[in-house]
Amino acid sequence: MHHIGYLLTEGFQVMGLATQTVFEYANKVAGEEFYVLQNFSAAGGDQRSSLGVGIATRKASTADQIDTWVVCGVGNPLESPSSPEERAFLQDVVKDARRVAAICTGAFVLAEAGLLHRRRATTHWVFARDMQTLFPDIQVENDRIYIVDGPIWTSAGMTAGLDLALAMVEKDLGDEVSRGVAHNLVMHQHRSGGQSQHSEMLTLAPKSDRIQNAMNYARKNLARALTVDELAEEANLSPRQFSRVFTAETGMSPAKAIEGLRLEAARLMIEKSRHPLEIIARETGFRDRRHMREVFLRGFGVPPQSMRREVRS
Results as ranks from 00 to 15, higher is better:
G106H: 05
D172K: 10
G194Y: 08
R262G: 07
V181F: 06
L263I: 03
G157H: 03
G73Y: 05
V14R: 15
E230N: 00
I279D: 15
S82G: 13
Q65S: 11
K220T: 08
G52W: 09
G251V: 09
Y35H: 08
S243E: 14
H190W: 06
G161F: 11
H117G: 04
R293H: 07
E310I: 10
A113P: 00
S199V: 01
E176I: 08
A43M: 14
F242A: 09
R99F: 01
V245I: 14
L166G: 05
A30H: 12
L110M: 09
A26V: 03
N213T: 05
G193T: 06
S208I: 06
K272R: 15
E24F: 13
K220Y: 06
W153D: 02
L202P: 02
R48T: 14
G150C: 03
H2L: 14
Q132M: 06
F108L: 13
T21F: 02
G44T: 10
K59C: 07
S243C: 05
G193I: 05
D96R: 13
R274D: 15
E294M: 11
F300D: 10
D229N: 12
L78S: 03
I270H: 02
S196V: 07
N27D: 02
P254F: 05
A167S: 12
V100S: 06
G260S: 01
A30G: 09
F286L: 08
E170V: 10
D137W: 12
R98P: 00
S49M: 04
F23C: 06
R129I: 07
G11W: 10
A30L: 14
L134K: 12
Q305W: 12
W69H: 04
V140E: 04
G5N: 01
V36Q: 14
R308E: 13
V36T: 15
V228I: 13
N213L: 07
Y217D: 02
E278D: 15
Q139L: 13
A113C: 02
I147T: 11
L90V: 08
F135I: 03
H291N: 14
P254I: 03
G73D: 00
S80Q: 11
F300W: 14
P151V: 01
G174F: 08
R119E: 11
D288P: 06
Q212M: 12
G251Q: 04
R267K: 03
D209Y: 13
L237E: 11
A266D: 05
T68L: 12
E294N: 11
A223P: 00
A232S: 00
R219I: 11
T62D: 15
R308P: 03
R267Y: 00
Y35E: 10
F296H: 07
L37W: 01
D209L: 15
V302T: 11
I145R: 15
V36M: 07
P303A: 03
V311I: 13
T250P: 05
Q13A: 08
R267L: 06
L90K: 01
H2E: 04
Q20I: 00
